[in-house]
């Protein structure tokens, strides 16, 4: 197997990076919401149209875009390895496939988790 850095597509670390990013997003959303509601809670009357919701959805979209990009990069790598047949490449193809799908699911999970920000008041 060729030597790969952890950030390169095909490295086994790619299998978990997508959901590590999702986990950081999840903690930041929940933690950020709690801290913001403690320090500077927006007015309840404004409903979902607050600076806090704006920030949270912007952050969500940013992470969503990042995960989509990583999925695309991983998918492209996987496709490039498709025709090679030796053992090591087979393993890298496996990692590429698994990480592509996990990046995509992490992206969908991020978007799905962030959508309530559009309709719910943050601190009530």
């Amino acid at each position: 197997m060729s030597k790969l850095t952890w950030f390169a597509p095909g490295h086994p670390a790619q299998i978990v990076i997508g959901f590590v990013i999702w986990s950081i997003w999840f903690i930041a959303m929940y933690g950020g919401l709690s801290v913001a509601c403690q320090l500077a809670p927006p007015e309840v009357e404004k409903g979902a149209f607050t600076w806090l919701n704006g920030g949270l959805i912007a952050f969500t979209l940013l992470v969503f875009a990042l995960l989509l990009f990583l999925a695309w990069r991983s998918g492209r790598y996987c496709a490039s390895k498709h025709k090679e047949s030796d053992d090591a490449v087979g393993f890298e193809r496996f990692v590429g496939y698994v990480s592509t799908v996990l990046y995509l699911i992490a992206a969908v999970a991020t978007l799905a988790g962030g959508l309530p920000v559009l309709v719910l008041s943050p601190c009530s």
Binding site: M29, Y30, L33, G113, P116
Partner: peptide, 11 residues
């Protein structure tokens, strides 16, 4: 808060 509940409900 409802929004926090929604995060966990979706997850």
């Amino acid at each position: 808060p409802q929004l926090a509940q929604a995060f966990f409900s979706v997850a």
